[in-house]
Design a protein around this nucleic acid. Structure first.
Length: 526
RNA sequence: GCCCUCCUAGCUCAAUUGGCAGAGCAGCUGACUCUUAAUCAGCGGGUUAUAGGUUCGAGUCCUAUGGGGGGCACCA
């Protein structure tokens, strides 16, 4: 019968085992990586270029570097490095640590120049064989375009005067197994730019700049609203009744409740419920979904800013729109005069206010209060009038003759009440609604009302809208709860919706909404 | 849904009236201690989106399919 080992002995054995394991790990720190590399190497789908990069990954690992890197603190953004001052004639500037992606590589015997880029800027790295040590130089030989690298070194200038980090230590931070696009032209294939935005972002600096600017733009709008006492809220994206706009919704389904739901087409009706609840100034940056056609100005999901202000009206919303947009422009820089696809636009406020009726008279030569002249003008320009409501015809005339002319920015105010089911009517003329749309370059950028808060009129308008709906596309339903909310008294209010994507297009001069949406909707790859 | 148009090497692009699929970059091998899209020498790299058809012969012409772009329709 064997005696149980002494406790000391157990401990000793345990420690010996642990030490052995640690030794093994140290001598072969990338066992798991090598294993996964083998899998990819054997994969017939991996191309020749990918295979040579996997071989380099193994060499890099053999040198003792983790091919997938690890935490790398205390970096300085390259933009900040570029801002550091160098004393003239001094050989060594400050010591710096940067990290980024290798964009360019120029070998020169025992010296290699790299171009490293992080999300702020690019900078040249000088790697000399005698300055980075044996392993560092060996690593340098295995570096590919696209790899992620950390560099410690001193800032200085080369003979030609280029600001350069003279590397003293290299830290490998990530192996790129796929070759990046061509270094000069970048990625131009639009399909791949949308599908593989990650590649677009790291190869095309203007694409990255666009999305960074979009983010600053939105941040500025958030702080503008916060300064004015608005609070940010989140309301349902899945709704049993998709209201607040006239658009086809997407349908989804909740399994446990066995309930069909719609993705929201607007947050409007929920935000107004909050006004009833006493939240006096609310806004939401809402992703909304509309099951409609796709075009350079339409993505099925897009971002909308909606804001509601109790005890305000649409005039307050005009002033708010000016503040939001001019602050957004300030945040991205470049001044109030912008160029959009060759058209100069001056955003200096205040922006002109023009009534719908005046513009219609000016550009289409008709008076919206005179049905006969409307029908005559429509027929003259080939717009179908049979069986159509006079207000629909009027609006088609407006779209045909006026919208393109509105290079803007211009507030089109006082719409025909018949096409505004959520808007308060003018006291002086119930045929006209207190609504404006902001137009820039023929594009509708914002839409705002003095909100209708009369529950009885609201219910009547909803019913009229439902009655006018065609059978086949009648997905709109009566929102009884919204009417009930209004019956508890919603304060008189101004409300506004701003299309964030279109604003980004205009301010950043991008022709397609897909250039300001990170991942636009695409058909699946075959 | 309809119309027009595009798809060639990893990337950017050529290829005459239908006549041997090419270049630059990237890659590989080598040279080079201050380059700038580094340079120089050599080498490899393709089911021309897919499937049919016409033809002695198709990247090129025809049809269909897939994907992209633009326009129309839809979208207050």
């Amino acid at each position: 019968m064997e005696h149980a080992a002494e406790p000391d002995e157990i401990l000793r054995k345990f420690l010996a085992k642990a030490e052995k394991a640690a030794k093994k790990a140290a001598s072969d720190p990338i066992e798991a990586t090598a294993e996964s590399a083998a899998i990819v190497t054997d994969d017939a789908s991996a191309g020749a270029l990918e295979r040579t990069r996997i071989e380099k990954l193994e060499k890099i690992a053999a040198l003792g570097f983790d091919p997938w890197g690890e935490k790398f603190d205390d970096r300085t953004p390259i933009e900040a490095v570029r801002g550091m001052t160098l004393v003239d004639g001094e050989a060594h500037g400050p010591r710096v640590r940067v990290a980024g992606r290798i964009m360019l590589r120029r070998g020169q015997g025992k010296v290699v120049f790299l171009e490293l880029r992080d999300w702020s800027e690019r900078i040249q790295i000088f790697i000399g064989k005698n300055q980075v040590g044996e392993t560092g130089w060996a690593l340098c030989g295995e570096l590919d375009l696209g790899d992620l690298l950390g560099v410690d070194g001193t800032l200085g200038r080369t003979k030609t005067g280029e600001l350069t980090i003279f590397a003293e230590r290299l830290t490998f931070l990530g192996k790129s197994l796929l070759p990046p696009p061509e270094k000069w032209h970048g990625l131009t294939d639009v399909e791949r730019r949308y599908r593989q935005r990650y590649v677009d972002l790291f190869t095309n600096p203007e694409s990255l700049a666009t999305f960074l600017a979009r983010s600053r733009m939105i941040a500025a709008m958030r702080s503008t609203l916060a300064e004015r006492g608005f609070i940010e809220v989140e309301t349902p994206t899945m709704q049993a009744i998709a209201g607040g706009a006239a658009a086809r919704p997407f349908v989804t389904h909740h399994n446990t409740l066995d309930l069909n739901l719609y993705l929201r087409i607007a947050p409007e009706l929920y935000l107004k419920r909050l006004l009833v609840g006493g939240m006096e100034r609310v806004f939401e940056i809402a992703r909304v979904f509309r099951n409609e056609g796709i075009s350079p100005r339409h993505n099925p999901e897009f971002t909308m800013l909606e804001a509601y202000q109790a005890y305000g009206d649409y005039h307050a919303m005009m002033e708010l729109a000016e503040a939001l947009i001019t602050n957004a422009i300030e945040a991205i820089g470049g001044g109030m005069t912008r160029s959009f696809q060759g058209t100069e636009i001056d955003f200096t406020p205040p922006w002109p206010r023009r009534t719908y009726a005046d513009l219609l008279a000016e550009h289409a030569g008709v008076d919206p209060a005179d049905p006969e002249s409307i029908v005559a003008a429509a027929e003259r320009s080939g717009i179908e009038t049979k069986g159509k409501d006079i207000h629909v015809i009027t609006n088609e005339l407006f779209e045909e003759f006026v919208e393109d002319k509105l290079s803007g920015p211009v507030f089109v105010i006082d719409y025909p009440a018949a096409i505004c089911p959520l808007t308060k009517r003018k006291k002086s003329n119930p045929e006209v609604a207190e609504r404006f749309e902001l137009f820039v370059c023929g594009m509708e950028l914002a839409n705002a009302y003095t909100e209708l808060n009369d529950p009885m009129l609201q219910e009547k308008l909803f019913r009229a809208q439902l009655a006018g709906q065609k059978e086949e596309d009648s997905m709109a339903k009566m929102d009884d709860d919204f009417v009930r909310a209004l019956k508890h008294a919603m304060p008189p209010a101004g409300g506004i919706g701003i299309g964030i994507d279109r604003l980004a297009m205009l301010l950043l001069n991008r022709a397609s909404i897909r250039d300001v949406v990170l991942f636009p909707l695409m058909r699946p790859e075959s």
